[in-house]
Computed example of a mutant assay.
Amino acid sequence: MEKLCLRNQVCFKFYALSRYITALYQPLLAALKLTYPQYLVMLVLWETQPISVKDLGHQLMLDSGTLTPLLKRLEQKGLLSRKRSTEDERKVEVSLTEKGILIKQTASCIPDQLNQAMAIDANDFQQFNTILTKLMKQIPD
């Protein structure tokens, strides 16, 4: 096996696959008028709210310079609100609005639609997800 051959590079396969999957999401998210990064923010908020901007950034592995514009756009769309914590003014907490809560129902079909578009069987998908989870745990905080 040639080490410096593009087809043998795991990093390239991850890069190409990431771009492909993100592109598959675009038409699915169009109905929600969300970009893929905005969808990721919404996924976290559908699980946990209120949440501090710091904790949200940690979960999404995004710095505040990247996260703040995303939150501003989602706030302009009426999907979330940001406010200073009453306990610590330095903390900004993010919560979903009624509209943000309601679009979860519309978004609930997206994972199944993505799985169909990827044409991978459930067992292979589960194994792949397990391996990715193991690899993600190796990323330093």
Rank of each mutant, 00 (worst) to 15 (best):
K3D: 15
K3N: 10
L4P: 06
L4K: 14
N8A: 07
N8W: 02
Q9R: 14
V10T: 02
C11N: 12
C11P: 03
C11K: 15
F14T: 11
Y15G: 09
Y15I: 05
Y15L: 15
A16E: 14
S18T: 10
Y20E: 13
I21S: 06
I21A: 10
T22P: 04
T22I: 08
T22N: 12
A23I: 04
L24F: 03
Y25W: 04
Q26N: 11
P27V: 08
L28E: 15
L29D: 08
L29Q: 04
A30D: 09
A30S: 13
L32R: 00
K33Y: 04
T35M: 05
T35C: 09
Y36T: 05
P37H: 03
Q38G: 05
Q38P: 07
L40H: 08
V41P: 03
V41R: 06
L45A: 02
L45P: 01
E47A: 07
T48A: 10
P50N: 06
I51E: 01
S52K: 00
V53K: 01
V53P: 02
L56R: 00
L56E: 00
L56G: 02
G57A: 04
H58Q: 11
H58R: 12
Q59K: 10
Q59Y: 07
L60D: 04
L60G: 01
L62N: 01
S64M: 01
S64H: 07
G65S: 09
G65F: 05
T66P: 01
T66I: 11
T68G: 00
T68L: 00
T68P: 01
R73S: 15
R73K: 14
E75H: 06
K77E: 10
G78T: 00
G78F: 04
G78K: 05
L80A: 02
R82V: 05
K83T: 09
R84H: 12
S85P: 01
S85N: 10
E87M: 06
D88V: 13
E89P: 11
R90A: 11
R90V: 04
K91Y: 06
E93T: 09
L96W: 01
L96N: 01
E98H: 07
G100R: 00
I101A: 00
L102D: 09
L102T: 11
K104F: 08
S108P: 03
S108N: 14
S108D: 12
I110E: 07
Q113L: 15
L114E: 07
A117F: 06
I120L: 13
I120Q: 09
D121R: 12
D121E: 13
D121G: 03
F125N: 11
Q126S: 10
Q126K: 14
Q126I: 12
Q127P: 06
Q127G: 05
F128W: 06
N129I: 04
T130M: 10
T130Y: 03
T130H: 07
T133L: 05
T133W: 11
L135H: 13
M136E: 13
K137M: 11
I139D: 09
D141I: 05
D141H: 11
